[in-house]
Design a protein around this nucleic acid. Sequence first.
DNA 1: CCTTGAACCTGCGGGC
DNA 2: TGCCCGCAGGTTCAAG
Length: 273
Amino acid sequence: MPELPEVEVLRSSLEPVVVGERIERVRTWNRSLREPVSRGLGRRVAGRRIERLRRRAKYLLIDLDGGVTVVVHLGMSGRFTLVPSRAPRQLHEHLALFLESGRRLRLRDPRRFGLVFARATDRLDADRHFRHLGVEPLGADFDGACLARAARGRTAPIKSFLLDGRVVVGVGNIYASEALFRAGIHPRRSVGRVSRSRWDRLAESVRAVLASAIEQGGTTLNDFTDGAGEPGYFQVSLSVYGREGEGCPRCGATVRRIVQSQRSTFYCPGCQR
DNA sequence: CCTTGAACCTGCGGGC
DNA sequence: TGCCCGCAGGTTCAAG
């Protein structure tokens, strides 16, 4: 479900409604997510107030008073929503933060690739999940130069390169295809054979595609919703992702699907070189 | 270091 | 109707 735009939409939808709330307790029904949920999580966060919500890569960061941050990652199928008091437990609801108001923040994740843990806020960057993360694509230091620099000495196809979180974070399988389409670059092109001007164009495309997806409330293919349970609308704006066999919106050629490192890639053979 | 492939898990839709 | 297959938005680890 979630790439950077979806997590950002989740963050901004939850922020105004949960900041200032106190977490009363944590309840888990199933601790076996991608990594086991720590037994000490409840003790660590109970009684603390939510000060703000941030995002790093595809991680949602819930900063609490006292210098503690709850880290939530949604994996492939996770949803994190605010539900009213006494809302019945849903299938695959593995964990919930019970708030003082009675409402709760519910993590529902059928495939259990998600992740929840707490860390000292000032030590987040040193955590193994964050230490090797690359640049934020919507931040000031993301540009063609930084992509070109990261590509030096490498030969991987550019689609795989875009998915590598040590280079740039937050770009997942949907937006990698979309950004390459916008930039006119063939997904199989080796990063060793990309000109400087095309790196610039790609950086601009990544930014534009992500920003536009955020504006549209994210992409809802099956189950993405924001914190209030509302779906996104960017799926109608997708140019190539999921459109195998359809006409390219730019040149009319037939959109193709190929497989790269076991993931589908969609591209237009007419526009992308 | 780089690259690739397998692994983790459940659900859904298509084909027969 | 029911079964089997392929497919799904992410990350990590091992092996070459």
